[in-house]
């Protein structure tokens, strides 16, 4: 039994591709990292990881670092409205990891293309929201302007 158990452990380490040495180093580094306050800032470098297969590109999980419900829920909204998407959802595997996984399954198009199009849609929506909002504020200020003038003696 014992040998069997140890095999399982070994196997899972192999599957995950984590070196024991690495795990130990990560654990050593742990407390030192937590002591420092982490300054969040716009992330640079590669932070979107696509987990899928080469055979079937129509389904993949995208792992985004330094993102949370803010982006993931908005993307789920635009993805779900894309007729090419058969399934989409997101999860945050652990609350203290700044990471979100977005699952996209499509009718055949590559999942990454569909996700990109959804991001594009979301950007267009945002641009429209911004211009509409700015216009409304300008209108409000113009309308308010003459009124404010009347109050003054």
């Amino acid at each position: 039994m014992l040998s069997c158990k140890s095999r399982v452990v070994k196997l899972s380490r192999f599957v995950l591709g984590i070196d024991c040495e690495e795990v130990r180093r990560a654990q050593d580094a742990g407390p030192r990292l937590t002591r420092r306050r982490r300054h969040y800032r716009p992330a640079t470098g590669n932070s979107v990881m696509e987990l899928g297969s080469y055979q079937d590109q129509s389904q993949a999980t995208f792992s985004l670092t330094d993102e949370d419900h803010t982006l993931a829920n908005s993307l789920r909204f635009t993805l779900n409205q894309d007729p090419r998407v058969t399934f989409c959802g997101y999860s945050i595997p652990h609350p203290s990891d700044a990471r979100v996984n977005i699952r996209v399954q499509t009718t055949g198009d590559p999942a990454s293309e569909v996700l990109k199009d959804s991001c594009q849609d979301l950007m267009l929506i945002c641009q429209h929201v911004r211009s509409t909002f700015d216009q409304a504020v300008v209108e409000f200020k113009n309308k308010k302007g003459p009124d404010a003038m009347n109050i003054e003696p």
Partner: peptide
């Protein structure tokens, strides 16, 4: 939010 999309 736009920047986030652009990043992806």
């Amino acid at each position: 939010l736009e920047d986030k999309c652009e990043r992806v």
